[in-house]
């Protein structure tokens, strides 16, 4: 009898812990341990503070960013965590961390190489061959972006036949490599993050050059999915979730690229305007 009670005691113990795990702790979360967040400037670098403690990266470095807007958006991100800190959804912080810690030990050239290898398999180069309707939709939505891309970068790009990636001219590679290398390392990690979400370097470039906003870019990247949804119905926990996730990722990446490349050579106008 004693053994039984002991066993049932253990099993209830395990059970409660287990239910707690599965209900409240699907992944490791921490309780919010700070009241407010703020930003401080420290010789040309900006830092985020949580109640006078400096925010640090996973490797233990102090999280520093090059400009004010970026520090502010990271601070807002930490401020918007209500009871628990869910770091999995804090893309801006994650991107800043990656750029500072560089866990993959990558260089800018590695990332550019990766992006160039990704380029021939760009989503926008693969038009549907079976579905007439889908093909029409793709021509209406994708072709303007492709035309814009070829005109802006002054390159020519063929479309793919079947599943074989299309050939890429050496000049195109050179142009794109030069363009990507003009960004610094932090921006490149963000670009890489955005490209992986969109599965399309061309769309990411269109975002970076302010041709489309992230919301539209994600719709274009998921064009076939949207087309199928019209026929088969929309499931919020699959399609809605992936759409929201991708848009958040792409806009975080884009925000970081635009902030990181910002140059502060601004002269404010004379005091008359501010009155």
């Amino acid at each position: 009898m004693r053994i039984f009670t002991l066993a049932s005691g253990i099993s209830t113990l395990l059970k409660t812990r287990c239910t707690l795990c599965s209900i409240y702790r699907p992944y490791a979360t921490r309780k919010r341990f700070y009241k407010g967040t703020a930003v401080i400037q420290n010789d040309n670098k900006w830092e985020v503070t949580l109640d006078h403690r400096r925010l640090k990266t996973p490797n233990g470095n102090v999280l520093t960013v090059g400009n004010e807007p970026l520090a502010r958006v990271v601070a807002v991100e930490w401020d918007s965590q209500n009871e628990t800190i869910s770091q999995a959804t804090m893309h801006l912080t994650a991107l800043c961390n990656t750029a500072l810690d560089n866990p993959g030990k990558l260089t800018s050239h590695d990332i550019v190489n990766y992006l160039l290898e990704h380029y021939p398999t760009d989503t926008l180069l693969f038009y549907s061959e079976d579905e007439e309707e889908l093909r029409d939709l793709q021509e209406r939505k994708w072709t303007p972006i492709l035309d814009w891309f070829q005109k802006t970068f002054n390159v020519k790009q063929e479309l793919a036949n079947s599943i074989q990636p299309p050939p890429v001219f050496t000049e195109t590679r050179a142009v794109l490599a030069r363009h990507f290398l003009s960004y610094d390392f932090a921006a490149l990690t963000a670009i890489n993050f955005g490209v992986e979400a969109l599965k399309s370097p061309i769309l990411m470039l269109a975002c970076m050059e302010r041709r489309v906003v992230p919301e539209e870019a994600v719709l274009l990247a998921r064009l076939e999915e949207e087309y199928q949804l019209e026929r088969w119905g929309r499931v919020p926990w699959a399609h809605g979730l992936s759409q929201a996730d991708l848009t958040a990722r792409v806009s975080a990446a884009l925000l970081l690229v635009h902030c990181a490349t910002e140059k502060h050579a601004i002269k404010t106008k004379s005091a008359q305007d501010s009155q």
């Binding site: 958006v73 801006l92 979730l241 929201a244 958040a248 806009s251 635009h258």
Partner: peptide, 15 residues
Amino acid sequence: TYHNYLHHSRKYKEL
């Protein structure tokens, strides 16, 4: 862009 980020990360958490 920032609005997109805020809106969609909130939506993601809600879903």
